[in-house]
Design a protein around this nucleic acid. Structure first.
Lengths: 242, 242
DNA sequence: ATACCCAACTTGTTTAAACATGTCAACCAT
DNA sequence: ATGGTTGACATGTTTAAACAAGTTGGGTAT
């Protein structure tokens, strides 16, 4: 349901790149030509281009034109850093079936130690959820999600088995906007060995994150522990001019 | 040397956030008020705000205002995913002294296997550089950099001991614009044990990346292997509307 | 041939205006 | 008290225009 004008333009250019109509190394038609072709102003074209630039598809060059630098990934990486997507969304790009098992689902009150780790205030009511994610038969992710109950009322074990984000967005009408994450590697714990199919690995790739909704409330703290060879994070960085 | 008008506005707002003049949770003055205050148009203010939004400092809320959501990091993370910065730049945020040791510096011709790994064309002339990075006395990063000689002429071992990027940018006048990276964890190899101070770790956090210059040429392939507890990647993601 | 200049492109920055749309508090009628 | 309306104000989108500045190729004068 695009109500904006730049959005279909963004998708049109993006799909022309992905379908190799515009190949890596090529220069796009000029902004003015796009504007005439799409029946919009140059600014609207520039907006679409700027998103694709931030995503690593395009490289505008002052005075020369806008070059395509997108190359399809050879290996599939399950997750993309720089995007916010759920396990189900990410897994849908893989061929294996994604399932989720609930390990823990309880309500807790935020104490000193939880507060220090998560950033929630002491005394807040929280959902504490542990889940294991499977790709096919292999347990690949051990997730701990802590939600602010006041912002996520009505969350149940049943919902957590599917997509919590779909519930928050579709049923509660919440909008997820910003997420802050930290990635590092850690030695596997007893709990990791118990829950994950680590194979010969004795370490995990961990991601901790805080998620904000559109009202600026930090409503979720997440910790994910990943089997290393099944997961990889990809991202595109654009060097700041400022 | 700011020739743009939005750039000092961006810095002004950013420093007011970092100095806690505007605290997390606060709403900024409205865009119109900023425009009057800075003597610019609303669009120029919006541009500064949009950069700070992408960096995770701000959360604009339709109809309400622009909220500050920046919180200073408790722990220092050496690197920021989503930015492009050199080891020296990143290390300057730490208190320990950063040094670099050259392990290998040679010229090679790109063969089939290098091409497959890096994306360079077979037959290209390349610099092949291995370096170990120290924080204080500890070897924390084992870097392999492969550069396209045609784009980075005159690179020497001496330069590699310092900052290669400073040479490329200041001396060759190259502009680094886009970088694509993949992060994962891997078992430590013999080479890792030999070069890094891994302590009790038997795994490393690896980052491979391709770097593009302002002419759209992929001129560098990088592989970094990090001691896990010394490095962490932080990033802020903003959920796409499209 | 070579060096230079210039005209015709390109993208980058900024302004001004108009309108759409979301939020919120004050006010009013019940 | 309560509920709904409304108006002031916030951000979001789009256009048009003007100018700045980088790139390129062709023409000209040497």
């Amino acid at each position: 349901m695009p109500q904006s004008k730049y959005e279909p333009i963004y998708h049109a250019i993006k799909s022309d790149i992905e379908s190799k109509k515009y190949q890596s190394g090529d220069f796009l038609p000029s902004e003015n030509e796009f504007a005439a072709r799409f029946g919009c102003s140059r600014n609207t074209v520039r907006r679409a281009i700027s998103i694709l630039t931030a995503e690593g598809y395009l490289l505008p060059q002052h005075g020369r034109g806008v070059q395509v630098i997108f190359r399809p990934e050879k290996e599939l990486s399950l997750f993309t850093i720089g995007g916010i997507e759920s396990f189900a969304e990410a897994a849908s790009r893989s061929s294996r079936k994604a399932t989720t098992k609930i390990v823990t689902f309880k309500e807790v009150k935020c104490d000193q130690s939880i507060s220090l780790m998560t950033g929630f205030d002491v005394g807040e009511d929280l959902y504490y959820i542990e889940r294991v994610r499977y790709l096919g038969k292999q347990a690949v992710i051990y997730d701990t999600n802590i939600f602010l109950i006041s912002e996520t009322k009505g969350l149940t074990e049943e919902i957590a088995r599917g997509s919590i984000y779909r519930y928050l967005e579709d049923t509660l009408g919440m909008t997820i906007t910003t997420s802050r994450r930290r990635v590092t590697a850690e030695r596997a714990t007893e709990r990791d060995y118990e829950l994950l199919d680590l194979g010969h690995f004795d370490f995990v790739l961990t991601v901790v994150g805080q998620v904000f909704n559109s009202r600026g409330v930090m409503f979720e703290y997440t910790r994910s522990r990943h089997v290393p060879d099944q997961v990889c994070f990809a991202e595109t960085a654009v060097r700041q001019k400022v």
